[in-house]
Amino acid sequence: METKGLNSPGYEIPDDVKGAVAITTIDRIYNWGRRSSVWPLMFGLACCAIEMIATAAGRYDFSRFGMEVMRPSPRQADLMLVSGTVTKKMAPTIVRLYNQMPEPKYVVAMGACASGGGPFKEGYNVVSGVDKLIPVDVYIPGCPPTPQALINGLIKLQEKIDGQHWKDTRWYREGDLAAIPIPMLGPDLIYQEQIPAIKEASKEA
């Protein structure tokens, strides 16, 4: 665990109190606390989920980053590791799970499928990346990313958390936390925002 940055506020500490006091900024301690206890949602979609399990297991062990507490319930999770192909049939569930997660929440798209559709992109039941449904923080390429690549992505996520300023975070601002509208399973997957366009098209036909 990295605590180097924690006690360095960016200005000189007088020699006589050095080692006796800890000075830090709210941002630093706030982000340090959050980045060291990112609890992922126990949520596996496809092939990448197996590598995610391998990462959680003994050899790579992401509990070294404070991530061992995988929560089966979205209500207790901070991080959604989208590990695999997002299908249209699964899309409403994924959005619902995301909406149920409390802020602050992060999404990591693990692997090609979750990032951009992957090899199955052309398929009729595949969503071209989970970013078509929910906002994504870190993209990890690879099919599947090896456990070390996944940890690399998680470190990237920690870096992102480090860079956040508590005043600017969306969960302390009003009005930004509207739930994402849940897409519908119609003749195909229907996003709520497409409904007017589809209506228009079917009228013309």
Partner: peptide, 28 residues
Amino acid sequence: TRAEAQNPYGANVKYPDQFDPEKWVPEG
């Protein structure tokens, strides 16, 4: 191009005649 950029809601998606998404009730 990205396939999804060209397909706002899927040019080949065949909706039934007079399909009204607002009245759609999922039956599954």
